[in-house]
Amino acid sequence: MIQVTVRPAGSKRESRYVLVLALIIVLIAALVAWSRVTPIEHNKLKAWQIDARHQLNAAEQGLNADLNVAVEEIQFALNQQQDPSLAYLESLYLPPFIKDSTRIERGAHEWQKYQTADDLLYLGISSDVAIAGHMLLRISRQTTASLDPQYDSWINHKANVTAASVNTFAFDDASLIALGFKQIISEYDKSVTRH
């Protein structure tokens, strides 16, 4: 007698195969995605640096952007043997040196120009560090003929910086750091969807 086992009609087995196949596909896809992840690299800031995007408030971000823009005009004046005085910068409508209506909103800074053997400096003493810290723009006088100006900007949130105390300043990195200034660092990030 021949016995034939006939399995009941149904798709249980096929469903299982499809499920296993789907799981394998998902696993492979996950593995590929995981292997292609690139870690987000952050510029590690030093203790005496501050990030312009995340660590400055809106007023300070605005001041920093304006200072960066002013560098071109200051450098041009230097190249023309002209004194980039505060009055000269104001005559060019150059913020933050021009006394416009955002001044109060941004801390009502009083600007002073200083000069060392190497650098030209513009220091803005804030009337209220809670609104915006004291700002300093430092432009190298040594490289003014180059196409790319050498400059940096600094911020200080300590209330005890006054116009009188500035006369004792040395404007090198170590002295500025000792006085509580932080160098402002702007990171350039291209669009994340570019290749």
Binding site: H42, R53, Q61, A65, N68, Y188
Partner: peptide, 30 residues
């Protein structure tokens, strides 16, 4: 934009609830 100080991206209510300096994904989306 290489020399422009950039601001974080905004564009949805969730981000704006956290203020204009809300960190975007990894702080990289500007």
């Amino acid at each position: 934009n290489e020399n422009v100080p950039l601001l974080p991206a905004s564009g949805n209510v969730a981000a704006s609830r956290m203020g204009a300096n809300a960190p975007s994904v990894g702080g990289k989306i500007v």
